[in-house]
Amino acid sequence: MANFATLDELKARLDWTLDADEERIATSALEDASDLASFHAGRDWPDGASAPRLVRTLVLKACKRYMDNPSGYTQSRAGDETLGWNDSQGEDAGTVHFTAEEQKLLAEIGGRKPGLYSVQVSAWNSVRRPVAAGLVPVAQPTPDSKPFPLFADEVEPW
Rank of each mutant, 00 (worst) to 15 (best):
A123Q: 08
P137E: 06
A51S: 01
A123H: 12
V136R: 14
P157Q: 08
L10K: 00
G134D: 07
A33V: 05
T17L: 14
P52N: 06
H40A: 04
M67K: 06
G48C: 08
A26V: 02
D44W: 01
R56K: 14
A12E: 13
S28P: 01
V121Y: 09
Q120S: 13
P149C: 09
W158D: 13
H97R: 09
G84T: 04
L30F: 01
D21P: 14
T6M: 06
P143R: 04
L58W: 02
S76H: 12
L54T: 12
V155M: 06
R128W: 06
D87P: 02
G79C: 15
F148D: 08
L60A: 08
A78M: 11
P46E: 01
T74C: 09
H40N: 09
R65N: 13
A51P: 00
W124F: 13
T142A: 11
W45Y: 07
G72P: 04
G42N: 07
E9A: 06
V121K: 01
G48H: 07
W85Q: 06
G90D: 04
K113H: 13
A41S: 13
V127I: 10
R24C: 11
P52S: 01
L7A: 00
G42T: 00
D32Q: 07
A2G: 03
R43T: 15
D153F: 03
P137W: 05
A26F: 00
E23H: 03
L10M: 05
E101S: 14
Y73L: 13
D92W: 15
L105F: 15
S126H: 05
F151H: 15
V138N: 10
R24M: 08
A78C: 15
E108P: 07
G94F: 00
G48D: 03
V131L: 03
A41I: 04
A33W: 00
E154S: 10
Q89K: 14
L14A: 02
A26G: 01
A20P: 04
F98L: 03
E108F: 05
E31A: 12
G115S: 08
F98W: 09
G94S: 05
L135N: 10
P46F: 03
E81I: 14
K104C: 09
P130N: 07
D8C: 06
D153R: 08
D32E: 12
W85S: 10
A100R: 04
Y117L: 08
G115R: 08
D92M: 09
P130W: 07
